[in-house]
Design a binder for these strands. Sequence first.
DNA 1: GCGGTGACGGTCG
DNA 2: CCGACCGCCACCG
Length: 111
Amino acid sequence: MSRSLLDLSPPSESHLKILDVIRRIPKGRVATYGQVAELAGLPGRARLVGHILRNNPMAANVPWHRVINAAGKISVRSGEGPQMQRRRLRAEGVTFTAPGKVNLDRHLWRR
DNA sequence: GCGGTGACGGTCG
DNA sequence: CCGACCGCCACCG
């Protein structure tokens, strides 16, 4: 079978650090890609966070749905991703100001 | 091994 | 709100 992304990717340190930060996002709160990257000690690498979530679909034990972009919107593109993300956030009590747009003033993770 | 390409972003106008 | 530009880098040819 052709496996290009997942199977061959060895868990790099940055990789693990990012996932670790995401695990710390409290329930009912959200964090931006840039914020996650920064907390992981990787300032300026917001896109790396996106890449990782993209290549780690399941992201087991990782509340991937709590990661959104700086505009408060859901960035997930693939298939049902967006819907599922919105659903999960709502289930945690996260409110939206518009379809797919999280109320950052209320739920952005402050640290 | 090297370079082009595009990305789950961010920022500014 | 939307679009253009920017910067950083993993992926693939």
